[in-house]
Every structure is written in C-alpha cells, then in structure tokens.
Simulated assay, not measured.
Amino acid sequence: MITTISALTSLLFTGAIFGFFYAWVCSTMWGLDAADSRTAIEAMQAMNQSVRNVVFFPAFFLTPVVLVFSAIVFAMSGLYRSAIFFGLAAGLYTTGALVPTALVNVPMNEALASITIPANPAEAARIWAEYSPKWQLWNQLRTVASGVALLLTGYALISGS
C-alpha cells in the first residue's frame, strides 16, 4: 500500500511541476513577448510575486523529497529497478530544475522586480529583450529536466523488480 501511495504521489508531484514549467514555455512567455514590454514587465513582476504561495510550494520543493521517499520505499520492498528510476528522477529534477531556478531564474526575477517600469516604451523593450530570452532558455532547461523526471517516474511505476 505504501509503495502505491508513494509512487502515485511522486507521479502527481512530478507531473504538476512539469506542467507548470511547460505552461510557461508554450503560452505564458509567448503571450508576454507579444504584449507591450511595459505590460510584460508588470505582468511578470506580478506573477513572480504571486508564485510564492502554499499551493506552489509542494510541487516545487517537495517533488525531490517525495521521489527520494519512493526510491527508499521501493528499495526496502526489494523493487530495486523502480527505486533506481525514482532516485534518478529525484536527482535530475534537483539538478536540472530546482538548482537552476535558485541560481538563475530567481535572481533574474528579483532583478526584474527591483526595477521601476519605464514610461519610455523603447527602454521597457530593451529591459524585456534582455530578460525574456535568457529566462526562457533556462525555463526550457527546467521543463526538459522535469519532463524527463516525469518519464523516469512513469518508468519506475511500470518497470517492476
């Protein structure tokens, strides 16, 4: 029973965080890039402020914890192959999504939050052009890492032994 609960929780958390990053890739940032740069900056500032909440916290911070817990539970149950894939998913998510977020995306978000939105559209366009492509590149890395972690989690569920 504990293996089932931990495995499904791992799948849910990994799927949730992959979906979060994926939505930024295929809609949110494209929409902001299409908007007036002043609007994009203001919206990004608001979204970055609002993401720090109790609903987001479990998927972002607890995904590797849940994955490691599943790896331990499966190893203790003698399901070593599954344990390995849960462990790989935890490591990949941590190094490919959590760490880049802390080292790159969050500092970029904090720098953007500290600016006053310029009245001059050209200045706002310059700021957004310096921010958006780099932020998106790192978000794409987080998305790929989270997506592969999700695949590893799914494989852990079906791999047995």
Results as ranks from 00 to 15, higher is better:
10 S>C: 04
111 A>V: 13
31 G>M: 13
47 M>F: 08
14 T>P: 00
78 G>L: 08
122 A>I: 04
87 G>S: 12
99 V>R: 04
35 A>W: 01
71 A>F: 09
118 P>L: 08
35 A>D: 05
86 F>Y: 12
46 A>N: 10
140 Q>M: 09
139 N>S: 12
111 A>H: 14
86 F>W: 03
130 E>A: 12
39 T>C: 12
103 L>C: 09
6 S>D: 06
37 S>H: 04
78 G>S: 08
159 S>D: 09
1 M>K: 12
96 G>M: 01
22 Y>T: 02
53 N>L: 03
22 Y>Q: 07
40 A>T: 02
72 I>L: 14
104 V>D: 07
154 G>H: 00
27 S>I: 15
55 V>Y: 09
29 M>A: 11
106 V>W: 06
65 V>H: 03
95 T>A: 15
45 Q>Y: 10
29 M>F: 12
68 V>M: 05
47 M>R: 15
36 D>I: 09
69 F>I: 13
68 V>G: 02
71 A>W: 10
154 G>C: 01
35 A>I: 00
2 I>Y: 15
44 M>I: 10
4 T>K: 08
66 V>W: 00
139 N>I: 08
133 P>A: 04
27 S>F: 12
39 T>R: 15
99 V>A: 14
78 G>R: 06
27 S>P: 11
36 D>G: 06
127 I>E: 04
127 I>F: 03
11 L>S: 10
21 F>K: 03
110 E>S: 08
160 G>T: 09
29 M>L: 14
131 Y>G: 02
119 A>S: 13
139 N>C: 11
97 A>H: 01
133 P>C: 04
150 L>A: 09
146 S>H: 02
147 G>P: 00
128 W>S: 00
38 R>G: 15
136 Q>R: 05
29 M>Q: 14
119 A>K: 15
8 L>V: 09
91 G>A: 13
118 P>A: 14
50 S>M: 14
137 L>Y: 09
80 Y>A: 15
141 L>Q: 07
24 W>D: 06
1 M>C: 11
2 I>K: 12
13 F>W: 02
41 I>E: 00
70 S>M: 13
18 F>W: 06
158 I>Y: 11
138 W>C: 00
142 R>Q: 07
13 F>I: 03
33 D>G: 11
143 T>C: 05
88 L>C: 13
96 G>Y: 00
43 A>V: 14
57 F>W: 13
89 A>H: 01
5 I>K: 08
24 W>T: 11
7 A>N: 05
121 P>C: 05
118 P>W: 04
36 D>E: 15
50 S>F: 13
57 F>E: 14
134 K>F: 12
100 P>Q: 09
141 L>G: 07
55 V>S: 06
94 T>S: 14
6 S>I: 15
31 G>E: 11
160 G>W: 09
145 A>H: 08
62 L>P: 02
139 N>M: 10
42 E>I: 11
109 N>T: 03
21 F>E: 05
132 S>D: 07
133 P>I: 05
78 G>Q: 07
146 S>V: 03
35 A>R: 01
65 V>R: 03
26 C>K: 11
27 S>D: 10
22 Y>H: 06
58 P>T: 02
53 N>W: 00
61 F>W: 14
98 L>A: 04
120 N>F: 11
59 A>I: 01
117 I>V: 15
68 V>E: 00
124 A>C: 02
